[in-house]
Design a protein around this nucleic acid. Structure first.
Length: 261
DNA sequence: ATGGTCGACTCTCGA
């Protein structure tokens, strides 16, 4: 079973590359983030014609996550438990197939708006959102659920995950409080698939559209696929499709993938 | 060409 996770930065803009990816890799499960589409505008039919069921948590213009699957999905959950009362931001979707719970997440970025660098409301929301995610994952794991979660976690976990850590010390991708929240997640009984297998050095999954970041290799590792420890014996390989950052009309993120037998 | 993003959507915002 191959699982891919990709922040596509608009599913409609990325359809040519997505179609290539699906036909070349034939993944079983695909987690998408930043689809920037609603049920009205999401390309359900194109994916269906390629053999995929789609479930989405959609939002106009921003955010939006989805799961594509070769097999029917059950027990779909489109809101992260605990965040129902927030201004709705489509950042979480969960569904089950064959005894495995699949989750696609787009963690809030957390940086303040350019207009008001003192505004911490987005950072507060990010920390609260991560608290809810950690609680939800802990609950699933306590119930002995097999789990595969992928997405854009918007956290630079280690200094070696960014081309120049000193530039990002006060950035919401790297603040100590944010790293603490992410450490709570990585300390769960789960395993990082790409860290276990990828030979890339440095291992990045994101290069900004701005400032020639790709050309200069000014990258970051923001995207991950984690599996619950009970699935570790089945994990055979994992990596990133780095070359897709150099394709025409790329996303600023590349797909990350793992292979389970 | 001496700079340099992109996408969605109303034009400015978010990343």
């Amino acid at each position: 079973m191959q699982v891919i996770s990709w922040n596509v930065a608009s599913v409609r803009a990325r359809m040519p590359l997505l179609k290539n990816l699906l036909s070349e890799q034939k993944p079983d499960i695909v987690f998408l983030q930043e689809v920037k589409a609603t049920h009205e505008t999401f390309p359900f039919r194109e994916f269906s014609e390629m053999g995929y069921f789609s479930v989405i948590s959609g939002q106009k213009s921003f955010n939006g996550v989805a799961i594509l699957s070769r097999y029917p999905l059950q027990e779909v959950l489109t809101v992260l438990p605990g965040t129902q009362e927030e201004i709705p931001q489509a950042r979480f979707i969960q569904a089950k197939n064959q005894g495995i719970t699949f989750i696609s997440v787009y963690v809030p970025n957390g940086n303040p708006p350019e207009k008001d660098p003192t505004d911490t409301s987005r950072l507060d929301y990010k920390l609260k959102w991560l608290d809810h995610l950690n609680a939800h994952l802990l609950s699933l794991l306590n119930q002995k659920q097999s789990l595969i979660i992928g997405g854009d976690f918007n956290v630079i976990e280690k200094d070696s995950d960014v081309y120049n850590p000193e530039l990002y010390r006060s950035n919401a991708l790297m603040l100590p409080t944010v790293r603490d929240h992410f450490r709570t997640l990585t300390n769960l009984p789960i395993c990082s698939t790409i860290r276990s297998f990828s030979q890339e050095k440095p291992l990045y999954s994101f290069w900004d559209f701005q400032g020639g970041a790709w050309y200069k290799n000014n990258g970051m590792l923001l995207d991950h696929i984690f599996i619950s420890n009970d699935l570790k014996p089945r994990l055979k390989n994992a990596g990133i499709f780095k070359e897709m950052r150099g394709a025409s009309k790329p996303s600023d993120h590349v797909p990350v993938w793992c292979l389970l037998e």
